[in-house]
Design a protein around this nucleic acid. Structure first.
Lengths: 343, 343
DNA sequence: GCGATTAGCCAAATCGTTTTAAATTTGTTC
DNA sequence: GAACAAATTTAAAACGATTTGGCTAATCGC
């Protein structure tokens, strides 16, 4: 009896009050004004659960959070939260055990069926991602953060991983590097494949043969960065440069290089992808880290924005956004030892 | 007309079906069984918003997410999500601009008033935290992650920061270190004060004078770790050991030490606090990092558990949990150069 | 065998909104 | 000043569950 009571105090009907607050055109400007002011003064707020029941909207966007390794997650979500501030939309977090993507299907199924969310965001898809097909089949609104190659129409937001790695690799080649190792993300994910492609295309453009022994895939952890880098450095001839998928991987590489008595930015060049974290900055590393950069917080904010548009009725097939990636050169890249840089 | 329809198909009344599914005693075991089976078979699930409206419960726990620096956040939340899996409780994320705590009051106020959450978790409190007083006054359920010194009764879960730093510092003193610098967390927060105290108590126990020039406070970022460490290392005599509040800080310290041409684990000892992240492990650092350790993911899971108890009616004054912290010695700690270790 | 319990089930009220369809007031035109 | 249209406002019907209070039939004590 909350709206009822509030309306009574204003000498209006619940209907008019409800409409005034929701900005419907049928109510006079003067009344709307008064209602708005009194709502603030008397502290009236519609009961959110009643609103949700009657409108059939859940008032929340779902995100599935993997168990391991995803330090980017907080930044992305924080960006979402920022954009959603002021809207009456919450973020709902669902945990997953982080096994295969197939195992995630029941999770999405529950999430959708529970009616707790109006849309979900799918992260790190594969080229032929089951989750996308599944959600599309259900006709449930979703946005993919990343890309897939499926025919199924869907909204997505991604960064230009391929271009980023093409430029990073090309730059290293221009400096004179010939053996460039890559420590990429989890095998099978589209973003990893795109990075693979950018890397290979750059090599090919310059007529350098691709050597599979110089490429590794795995989670973005310092540990894998270290282990892969160590094993690459044992090769002979060893690589003179690394491209890596994350800041954590770069930390591991730095350590591996140092542990071999080599110096980053002199003996070994490194370029890594930087999602821009407040707590770990490429510029502060020693030597400062050259990086392909794109703010994942900004992506989170934009993702929330696009989901809102999707829910507002914009067609999924219209929502495709590809963000360019900056290449920022710092001290960790230099010509290889005893080699002249080429023009 | 969902429950109604489902009940009709079973030849039962909505009342009985609802009770059967919620496990009330007034319904016979046989009927309950049948209802449960048919619910699965026919795919009936109560509309969550209707349930929420009628029960008055929001079905969610709120967490306020600061904008900057909180890489621990994702792990904590992931732990919560893990525990909440299977319960019908969601996690709701609210962003904050991360200014003073006072500025957060309206945010908590909105969160509570909006009726979107049944309880909130308050992070990193101050000894006399306004948020705690505010929530208590409202009579709203909440759990504090960390501690405060307020008289206001409230539920809390914390780790023994004081003990952790006392042991870490004592260990360094036992190794023979006499000038031990501390890079602590944000000034004013209780966990920082507890660490200060543990550090100072250890010094005092051994009769070493406390030198305020050896202590710094700030966000847990690699940048501050680096800057503070650099400036400490410029002192003369310079410190021979560091204790630090986070892994990121430790990364900064390692870099600073190296940039001065010194060696961690030989010229300079380091002990940092490790919240246990899948992507950055103390054991893998070079040299491996001695650390005070406590899983923040486990804390998140337990926090969710305690909130559930709180909502289940357990008294807030009963819910106080203090977790011990391990001290794990690795390669980053050693006796100071040209000093004998003391017994 | 009878009144009192009790186990099992149900009809209807309720939660607090939005929205449909209808009623009222106001404004315009002749 | 009547007739009609347009602008406001309203009463009442959803939304889909839970829960109160009541009803029937089976069980029990004596």
């Amino acid at each position: 009896m909350k709206l009822k009571e509030f309306a009574r105090q204003l000498g209006l009907s619940p209907t008019t009050v409800s409409r005034a607050l929701s900005g419907y055109p049928e109510v006079s400007e003067k009344t709307r004004q008064r209602v708005a002011e009194e709502a603030v003064r008397l502290g009236y707020r519609p009961n959110i659960n009643a609103v949700r029941l009657v409108t059939g909207r859940a008032g929340a966007i779902g995100v599935v959070m993997g168990r391991s390794g995803e330090f980017q997650f907080a930044e992305f979500m924080s960006g979402m939260a920022e954009r959603l501030d002021g809207e009456d939309i919450d973020i709902l977090v669902s945990p997953t055990a982080d096994r295969g993507l197939t195992d995630e299907i029941p999770l999405y199924s529950r999430l959708v069926a529970s009616g707790r969310v109006d849309a979900v965001i799918v992260h790190s898809p594969e080229p032929n991602d089951e989750r996308i097909a599944f959600l599309r089949e259900l006709g449930f609104p979703f946005l993919v953060h990343g890309r897939s190659e499926t025919d199924v129409t869907h909204a997505w937001l991604d960064i230009d991983n391929e271009g980023a790695l093409r430029r990073a690799t090309a730059h290293l080649l221009d400096l004179g590097h010939r053996r460039i190792a890559m420590i990429n993300g989890r095998a099978g994910r589209t973003f990893s494949l795109h990075r693979d492609k950018g890397y290979r295309d750059a090599l090919e453009e310059r007529g350098i043969a691709f050597d599979p022994r110089l490429v590794a895939h795995g989670h973005f952890t310092d540990e894998l960065g270290f282990r892969f880098a160590r094993s690459f450095l044992e090769q002979s001839p060893r690589p003179t440069a690394f491209v890596a998928g994350s800041m954590m991987t770069a930390l591991g590489i730095y350590r591996a290089v140092r542990s071999r008595g080599l110096v980053v930015g002199k003996d070994i060049s490194v370029i890594a992808h930087d999602d821009v974290f407040p707590y770990l900055t490429a510029d502060n590393m020693v030597p400062s880290l050259s990086a392909t950069r794109s703010s994942i917080r900004a992506a989170g904010a934009r993702a929330a924005d696009l989901v809102l548009q999707l829910l507002g009725g914009r067609a999924a097939e219209e929502i495709h956004e590809l963000w360019p990636v900056e290449l920022i050169l710092r001290e960790s890249t230099a010509p290889p030892p005893q080699a002249e840089s080429r023009p």
